[in-house]
Design a protein around this nucleic acid. Structure first.
Length: 269
DNA sequence: GCCTTATGTTCAC
DNA sequence: TGAACCTAAGGCT
């Protein structure tokens, strides 16, 4: 589940139990030391940047969480049941508990360290309305394919394999296009589309979807979209299905170790 | 029930 | 480039 939208949703979940002392433990044991350090303290605030989540406690203690591929949060309303074996961190509040499952990172850090992590990340489309001049200037010198660039968190923070596929499709851009070939107006469109696709994702309750009421229209679309009711993505995991803009088959391929989904007709350089 | 797969990242070779 | 990390769901038997 976890691209930037999922992490921002998690930050909002944690925010709902801020301001009250929390009973924090590590039932599975892996993060026992970290849990002990903040047990009984109140969460001051929770915030995200890209796929990184930060929980701020008093005394310059910040829990830094990265979910990677398997990590999840679960809200367990009161009365809470005993945690499952895989719960690595549980925070109990009078109204319920947050269970953290299988995160790649759950570590105690300082504010300075948290700031350094954020400084190492690129802009987050969920939190920044427009790209800076500095970003565009430096992007103009990068020859990396855009499909690769999108996955580098130090370049853009929060986009993963789902949103990469969907954004590039909606913008009609081939993943192989060198970043330096992307014009300023194309970047503006990319950023706008990224926000239009990702912001609604923050509030989804079920699995990620990108085809929602108000979703952006693919640039290559010539006729109205004919929507198959079960279709929740434009191209992500739609291999063999019809491209919603041109009708040709969506394809998949391996690209730097990840599966890329695209319509070769609509996504040109 | 067993096997594969996944919206991610780091590290070893 | 591939393995390891580590979890749950879905597809297959």
């Amino acid at each position: 589940m976890p691209e930037g939208h999922t992490i921002l949703r998690a930050a909002r979940l944690w925010s709902t139990i801020a301001g009250t002392p929390l009973e924090i433990s590590s039932p599975q044991g892996r993060f026992e030391l970290e849990a002990k350090q903040v047990n009984g303290k109140e969460l001051l605030n929770a915030y995200a940047h890209g796929k990184h989540l930060f929980l701020r406690f008093p005394d310059d203690q910040i829990i830094h969480i990265h979910l990677a591929l398997y990590g999840k949060h679960h809200w367990r309303p009161a009365p809470i049941e005993p945690p499952r074996l895989t719960v690595r961190l549980r925070a109990v509040h009078p109204t319920g508990a947050i269970d953290l499952i299988g995160p790649h990172v759950c570590e105690l850090i300082t504010q300075i360290e948290a700031d350094a992590i954020i400084a190492s990340l690129g802009p987050d489309p969920l939190q920044q309305e427009t790209l800076s001049k500095e970003f565009l200037t430096s992007a103009a010198k990068v020859t990396t394919p855009i499909g690769r660039f999108f996955m580098e968190q130090s370049k853009i923070a929060g986009i993963g394999n789902v949103y990469r596929a969907e954004i590039l499709f909606v913008c009609g851009i081939s993943p192989y296009t060198p970043v330096s070939d992307i014009s300023k107006s194309q970047w503006e469109r990319i950023w706008k589309v990224a926000r239009e696709l990702m912001i609604p994702g923050v509030d989804l309750e079920g699995p990620t979807e990108t085809i929602l009421p108000g979703s952006p229209t693919p640039v290559t679309l010539t006729k109205p979209l004919k929507l198959d009711p079960g279709r929740t993505f434009y191209v992500y995991q739609c291999t063999g299905q019809q491209c919603l803009a041109c009708g040709n088959a969506v394809e998949e391929e391996q690209f730097y170790g990840r599966t890329l989904y695209l319509c070769r007709t609509c996504q040109t350089r």
